[in-house]
C-alpha cells in the first residue's frame, strides 16, 4: 500500500480525526507520524482521535507512534483518544498497558464525532 494512503486526516470542531489504514510498522510509521504531527501543530486541536478500525497490522513501532502522538497532543493541551481498534490491535495495545494512559473508545463513540 502506498504510504500516502495510510492516513486520512480531517478537522471538525477542534477535533482532529486521524483515520489510519493498512500495516503500521517501523517502515510505514515515519511518514504517518510526520503527517499527524504536521496536522497537530497546524490545527492546534483540542482532541486528536486515532481511528484504528482499518489498521490490519501493528507492532511495537505502532505502539511507539501512538505514545509519541499522545505526548505531542499533550504538549499543546489536547487529548488523544484511540478509536475502534480491531480485536487484534486491541490485544497489542492492552499488552503494552496503553489503556492505562490513553482512553480507548469503541463503536459507541461514533455518535459523538
Amino acid at each position: 500500500m502506498l504510504l500516502e494512503r495510510l492516513t486520512e486526516i480531517k478537522l471538525t470542531n477542534y477535533t482532529l480525526n486521524v483515520k489510519m489504514r493498512g500495516d503500521i510498522d517501523h517502515h510505514t510509521a515515519k511518514s504517518v507520524r510526520e503527517k499527524i504531527d504536521e496536522a497537530i501543530l497546524l490545527n492546534k486541536p483540542r482532541f486528536v482521535i486515532l481511528d484504528l478500525s482499518n489498521v490490519d497490522f501493528m507492532d511495537s513501532s505502532g505502539l511507539g507512534l501512538v505514545l509519541g502522538r499522545y505526548t505531542k497532543a499533550l504538549d499543546i493541551g489536547a487529548k488523544l483518544i484511540i478509536h475502534k481498534p480491531t480485536r487484534r490491535i486491541k490485544r497489542i495495545l492492552e499488552m503494552a498497558g496503553i489503556e492505562r494512559i490513553i482512553e480507548i473508545k469503541g463503536d459507541d463513540y461514533d455518535e459523538m464525532l
Binding site: 507520524r33 513501532s61 503494552a96
Partner: peptide
C-alpha cells in the same frame, strides 16, 4: 527520539 516503545522483546515473548 522518544518514538521507539521499547516493547519489541516483550511483544516477542508475549
Amino acid at each position: 527520539s522518544g518514538e521507539r516503545s521499547g516493547m519489541g522483546f516483550a511483544v516477542m515473548q508475549t
